[in-house]
Amino acid sequence: MRFVFSSGTVSNATVRAALVAVSALSLSACSETFDKLNPFADEKYKPEVVEEVPAANLYNDGLARMSDSNFTGASKKFSDLEKQHPYSPYAKKALLMTAYTNYESGSYDDAIQASKRYLTLHPGDKDAAYAQYLMAMSYYSMAPDVSRDQEQAEKAGVALQELVQRYPTSEYVKDAKWKLQVIQDQLAGKEMEVGRYYLNRRNYTAAINRFRVVVSRYQTTRHVEEALERLTEAYMALGIVNEAQTAAAVLGHNFPDSPWYKDAHALLAKGGASPREDRGSWISRSFRSVVGLVSGSN
């Protein structure tokens, strides 16, 4: 657009007014073009005042949803309470209930995070043991079968062990100990699965490392008998007869009626050896660290 001025004097004010008019026209045209491309052009901002719901109302609403087994909805109410009323007497309860309702709804990661926050903010509280239990149970619920990665099972084991050690008089300890045994058995089973894989492929050193984990960490599981027998096999295959004899001897001392001991004994006899414990062996030392497992030596 061009402005042609006739001869004569044109004031600065007149020129500025013309430029402003041009700018306004340009902005108006741009706005109209943008609105045609904007699917939300017809929506207008409407300021709204959101009323704050009292903490007691949110808490009771959460409880009501829990009673209807609407744990997802209940969790949202308890979470809203904690955010809107962080200094309310209900806030601490709401955080614990957030962990519980997330656990019940299967939102285990959220349950773990809420439990951890509770333990961080209220470590000495009377309900801290329950928060620890919820965290452990969430990990436990996510633990897969022995054929898959055991990261969650390991975390469950750590959380359960912490519960037993930190809150020994808690009402949750009995169940925690039982589940800890289940987790340890599963972790030992995974080590055995990998150890057998290496043993079958004659990678004896790798196999021994796996069976060693079972003997060192999971002596109270049902897998330890087989682990000792497999150690006898692997050490004999490598020609380390002394350790093979020790593995068989420790197996015989602690599980004399085990079919695994019979296999280990027969394997040694085939090689012209017999069970004999070397108390300086790592196998012997591992078992002596557990009171009552080793009764003596040959």
Rank of each mutant, 00 (worst) to 15 (best):
A269S: 10
A269D: 08
G272P: 08
S286R: 01
A264C: 10
K262N: 11
S286G: 02
R276A: 13
R288E: 14
G292Y: 07
W282V: 02
S258R: 12
A264N: 09
D278S: 05
L267I: 03
A273Y: 09
G271Q: 07
A264M: 07
H265W: 11
D278M: 00
G280D: 11
V290Q: 12
K270P: 02
G292I: 07
L267W: 05
A269C: 02
R279H: 04
V290R: 14
S289Y: 04
S258L: 11
S286E: 06
L268H: 07
S284W: 03
K262Q: 15
E277P: 02
A273W: 02
D257R: 14
R288W: 04
E277S: 06
E277K: 07
S258G: 11
D263Y: 09
V290C: 00
A264V: 06
P275L: 08
H265A: 12
L267T: 13
D263F: 11
P275M: 05
R276F: 09
R285Q: 13
S274M: 03
P256I: 09
S289I: 01
S258M: 10
D257H: 11
E277A: 15
K262C: 01
G292D: 06
D278A: 04
L268C: 08
P256T: 09
L267P: 05
D263L: 13
S284K: 02
P275W: 06
A266H: 05
H265D: 15
D257E: 15
S274P: 00
D278F: 01
A266K: 13
A266N: 15
D257N: 15
S274F: 08
A269W: 01
P259D: 14
P259G: 14
G292L: 06
W260S: 10
W282L: 04
W260C: 03
P259E: 14
